[in-house]
Nucleic acid binder design. Structure first.
Lengths: 209, 209
DNA sequence: TAGATTGTTAATCGATTAACAATC
DNA sequence: TAGATTGTTAATCGATTAACAATC
């Protein structure tokens, strides 16, 4: 469960955005100082981060932008998306299903589950909504171990239990409760308020202009 | 722009969730070891984090749950929400406007802006949608410096420029591009893919069961 | 008193930054 | 050759963890 250099991994998507912009602008070669400039980081940290991906630069010249884009995407697993189930096809679930970008960022939702008879059987953004009951057997049958949890808070733990029982070992949760799961299951909790809080704290620490 | 102990600040909302659960369960007193247990952290880190908030415990006993809830909320600024404008009342913007929890987490959106004639004038989850043109003067008039950016990626930079010109100094952006802004403006970029990537990396690093 | 826990200091660990030889 | 940049090592910085005296 130890992941090498998480802060560095978090910066990779940022480089990717910048590099894609470079590609679009016809820039074929870049350098650690140039990327750092664009990302607001010093060159050393950029070099260390890029080293993770295994992409090599040329001394005195820099890096090929296309190599970096490809290398980062491969390292992040973005050009080999993971099949996933989404549980809870309500408002938030629908937003996620319609968020095309995620498909290019490692996530391929192949089915959704819900308890609402009105939504069961419908197709949301190309994904069919199945009755929650089917969750028990489908992950095992299709060998899917990644689940997106977008049910209301009060059902989160109960549904998480169902997911775990069905063989889901990786849960990306958008519900607020802290879920308790067996040790072999990894939960990533998405908490909007963290980013907002960070923003408020940072601006409070800013020198008044 | 230096913020003391950002990792610690990020953990505070987690404690808060656990503590609220304790309150609901009628638990009046807790301790660093107990909180650490629930959050998956060692007691020392919990004590250090709680120290930030200024809440004091009692040697040999622990902390009063209600004190901690109040102390953390106050420290995070959650019981004194910041007035904000939202720009881009599309799908994502609508989801944010309907996300009640944020109101209890420091965000009070008082108006939204859009260019779509169909949505202008409508009221989404209690918030009126105004024409984008009004953005130029309203922040200054109402002394609002916090803005939520939920426009499509291709308009993000242009709209950010408008926000900055209007006096917004804190931008919470849900658009993917890296925005360039003057140094007195703080941008917090919300990137869904970061959490997902973290989950995939963590589970890849897990021992196979 | 015995057990538990705080607040705080010191030790450890990991990430950031600076520096520089090698090289295009 | 002169300028620039990589890859890597060493120095610095900050966060995590362990330890413990004070105290309820």
């Amino acid at each position: 469960m130890r992941v090498g250099n998480l802060p560095g991994i978090r910066r990779l998507p940022i480089y990717l955005h910048i590099l894609r912009q470079f590609l679009a602008d016809g820039v074929a070669t870049t350098s650690a100082p140039a990327l750092g400039q664009a990302a607001g980081l010093v060159a050393s940290v950029v070099r260390k981060d890029l080293e993770m991906t295994g992409v090599e630069g040329t001394t005195g010249i820099g890096y090929a932008v296309a190599d970096l884009v490809d290398g980062i995407e491969t390292f992040l697993g973005w050009n080999n998306p993971n099949e996933a189930f989404l549980v809870g096809a309500g408002k938030l679930g629908t937003t996620i299903l319609g968020y095309d970008t995620l498909r290019r960022q490692g996530l391929n939702i192949i089915a959704a589950f819900d308890v609402n008879p009105d939504t069961i059987g419908s197709v949301i953004h190309g994904v069919e909504v199945l009755p929650l009951g089917k969750l028990a057997t489908l992950p095992g049958r299709l060998n899917v171990t990644l689940g997106v949890l977008t049910v209301p808070d009060k059902h989160a733990q109960r549904v998480a239990d169902l997911m775990v029982k069905a063989g889901i070992t990786r849960i990306w949760s958008f519900a607020t409760p802290i879920l308790s799961v067996p040790t072999h299951v990894v939960v990533q909790r998405e908490d909007f308020s963290v980013g907002l809080t960070e923003l408020l704290m940072k601006s409070a620490a800013m020198p008044k202009k």
